Simulated assay, not measured.
Amino acid sequence: MERAIATAVSSGNGSNEKRRERLSREVPGVQLREHRFSPSKLAALVEVGVELGLDARALLEGTGLTPETVADPFTLTSSMQFLDAARNAVRLYPKPDLGVRVGRRMHVSGYGMYGYALLCSETLRRAFDTAVKYHQLANPMLDIRWVERDDALVWIFPERGEILLPDLDVPLYDFLIDLQFTVHVILTKDIMGSWCVPARASFMRAEPPHAAALAEALECPLAFDQPQNLLSYPASWLSRSPRLANSITAAQVSRHCAHQLEQLRWQAGITRRVYQELTRTPGQFPDIEQIAECLCMTSRTLRRKLEAEGTSYSELFTSVRKALAIDYLTTTSLGVEDIAQTLGFSDSVGFRHAFKRWTGKTPSEVRRSGALGTYDAIGAL
């Protein structure tokens, strides 16, 4: 039985290494709390909020940041800090146009080497491919992708149920979508010139009170109550060159971005290191004392370090078991009893209750659907 479980766990969509890499994108807190990004996006949010009469410290409540640290160009911030500040801003500001306002403040120069790589790309197609390839350098929030459909190139943005972010209510989701659309348009114009505006923007939600502000920012016709969130450009523009295109510099900067991306993968915070220990051996979950010993520190120090990154051993352990349960249900043939055993539950009843509490669904419902959309993907903004 144990050998059969190990074989099934090691199969599925690939090796344990691939599974661990996939789960690192799905476990809340593993990437969201890592301090590795420029404060430029947070600074734009705070600037706009202050101009609207909001208190900067109230905007940053719960982030562990101050207006002074956000203004420091050498401060490293996390995705969770931006998300917490955005949640504060949406709560404090009574109008729905905040995402548009913040998006209009963002420019390609605020994205460091990532932005420079976009500017000197040989073609618009290459710029868009580069944007997706190195998106993890841009303080990721939403998953994005682009496709060619007939005579259009179409950016596709996720619906709320596809996004793995904690406490993502409708107002915060709408803020992120408006921000994403606006940033895309602003950056594309920065790269190509003011002429390069979308042909059409489609939104899943009903027409909002600030539709006019959206139309002014996006400079294109808008459609609401649509099946997907889409931003379309003419496909014929893909071969056009950015204003600062330079093939030699583009290759140099692309290599630098690749190096930065690799560094991010290896320079993990304590949260990622604990996560790696929890996922190192399928079916074996070391307790906090064992992990602390592996990391050459006391369990008290480890708890303190995790708390500083906004998480705890128990939260990470629960998140890992939840993500693994979903992964096993959707990519292997393991039975519920075997999954329960692999995840350290004493019986399948306890596992079923825990899974229902985690996801709002039963294991059978998830297996029948083949996926659990709420926990599928986390991408970039």
Rank of each mutant, 00 (worst) to 15 (best):
M80V: 04
S11I: 03
V108E: 10
S78L: 04
V46G: 08
G360L: 09
L118T: 02
I191G: 07
A250S: 06
R33K: 15
R87E: 12
F351T: 00
S369E: 10
F351M: 02
D178Y: 08
P234N: 04
A89T: 02
L278D: 02
S364N: 11
V366Q: 01
L261R: 12
E148V: 15
A44L: 00
T330L: 06
S364D: 07
H107C: 06
P227M: 01
P73V: 04
P28A: 03
V183G: 08
Q260F: 01
D327R: 07
G373R: 14
T311F: 02
D97H: 00
K356N: 12
S24E: 06
V183P: 05
S78K: 01
H35T: 12
V9K: 15
R25E: 08
H135W: 05
R57H: 12
V70Q: 10
S247R: 15
L187W: 04
R160C: 04
V46D: 13
L119H: 03
S312M: 09
N139Y: 11
A44S: 13
Q31L: 15
I163T: 01
R125A: 03
A292M: 07
H259N: 12
S236D: 05
M113A: 10
T130D: 11
H256S: 08
L54F: 01
S38Q: 05
R126L: 09
L172E: 03
P158T: 05
D84N: 12
A380P: 08
P234F: 05
Q226A: 05
E307C: 10
E262D: 11
G310T: 04
R36L: 14
Q276L: 08
K18L: 09
R87L: 02
R104Q: 11
V102A: 07
Q228G: 02
D97E: 01
N246D: 15
K41W: 06
L59A: 00
L261P: 12
V197K: 10
A380G: 13
L164R: 09
T331E: 03
V320W: 02
L316A: 13
L65I: 06
L278Y: 02
P208G: 00
P242H: 07
R20N: 11
S348Y: 14
F355V: 14
E365L: 12
H256G: 06
Q290V: 11
K305E: 15
C220M: 00
I270K: 10
V27S: 01
G29F: 06
S109M: 10
H184R: 03
S40V: 09
G12E: 05
S314V: 07
C257L: 03
P208E: 00
S15V: 10
L83I: 14
Y111D: 07
H135C: 10
E365Q: 11
V253H: 12
R304Y: 14
W358G: 05
M106Y: 11
D97N: 02
L238P: 09
V70M: 05
R243M: 05
T130K: 07
V366N: 03
P209L: 05
F345V: 04
E207P: 13
P39T: 12
Q284C: 03
T281E: 04
P227S: 02
F128T: 08
A211R: 14
F82G: 08
R105M: 02
A308N: 08
M80N: 14
R303Q: 04
E315F: 06
L165G: 08
Y275L: 01
G62A: 00
P94H: 01
R352N: 09
F37I: 01
F175M: 08
T281W: 02
D151C: 13
L302C: 00
